[in-house]
């Protein structure tokens, strides 16, 4: 009964959690250390140029809180999913009452939640050396971060559905993920970029997430900005779900 109502999303979520428990320690170290290094390097590097102003550090820190999810989410959606497909885990799950939609969305929900955990860690650590104008904005921003992780996972699944081997991801990494990460506006304002780039990045999850999270931590975002970001992230997730659902259906059943 309940299984039908949620397509089994909650079951898959719980399964992912159980499978992930033993990597908890690795995950926390890896997902926090990398962003903090970027934060420190970029903050110090540019700060040394402008004689100790904290503005740029604040800029990078507020962006980084949102951008940090992209690493773990993408890893799971591309390589993790491919592994589960090849090891037959997906076939096994689909033999239960869980449907394909429940499987993909359950995994996406879990990987977004895990991304939020990484964002919390980075946010808490950066509280120690960055003065956020509005630290309480961190709590609502976690919702935006969750939606961004969910949308990014759904987008990456479209590539996974098409990939035949792990080597195919060599093209996804430089052509899709790194541009999405670097042009998310976490490191420098996208206002300085060519117009085409500015428009293009709005179609990918990281840029709206970074700008609205930054707005909330700075205390400049209005409720409409946040709702707009949530809406556009949901639309991205919905469109990509339609696409990857169709592709996976073809791959698994036909």
């Amino acid at each position: 009964m309940t299984l039908d109502r949620f397509f089994g999303i909650h079951v898959v979520f719980y399964r992912q959690f159980l499978a992930w428990r033993r990597f908890l320690k690795n995950f926390l170290v890896l997902s926090v250390f990398d962003p903090l290094l970027w934060l420190y390097a970029m903050g110090i590097g540019v700060m040394s140029m402008f004689g100790g102003t904290q503005n740029y550090l604040l800029f990078v820190a507020t962006g980084m809180v949102a951008a940090v999810i992209s690493w773990s989410v993408a890893m799971d959606a591309l390589i993790g999913t491919m592994q589960r497909l090849e090891q037959g885990m997906w076939r096994a799950v689909l033999a239960t009452p869980t449907t394909l939609l429940g499987l993909t969305l359950g995994e996406a929900a879990f990987s977004a939640t895990r991304g939020v955990l990484a964002a919390v860690m980075v946010g808490v650590v950066s509280l120690f050396f960055v003065d956020f104008p509005n630290p309480w904005g961190f709590l609502p921003s976690l919702i935006v971060i969750w939606f961004a992780g969910f949308a990014l996972h759904c987008m990456c699944l479209c590539f996974t559905a098409l990939a035949r081997t792990f080597a195919d991801f060599d093209f996804v990494w430089p052509l899709f993920l790194n541009p999405v990460f670097i042009f998310s506006g976490a490191f420098f304002a996208i206002d300085g970029m060519p117009k085409a780039v500015q428009v293009l990045v709005q179609f990918f999850p990281m840029a709206p997430a970074v700008s609205s999270v930054r707005g909330m931590l700075m205390g400049t975002a209005s409720i409409l900005d946040v709702l707009g970001a949530l809406l556009s992230l949901s639309v991205m997730a919905a469109v990509c779900t339609l696409i990857h659902f169709r592709l996976f259906q073809r791959r698994m059943y036909e």
């Binding site: 430089p174 052509l175 670097i182």
Partner: peptide, 18 residues
Amino acid sequence: MRDLLDRLLYLFAFGFGM
């Protein structure tokens, strides 16, 4: 593709952004 594109991306992003 893998070796070069990443480098070019950093070059353009930081060259023009920074």
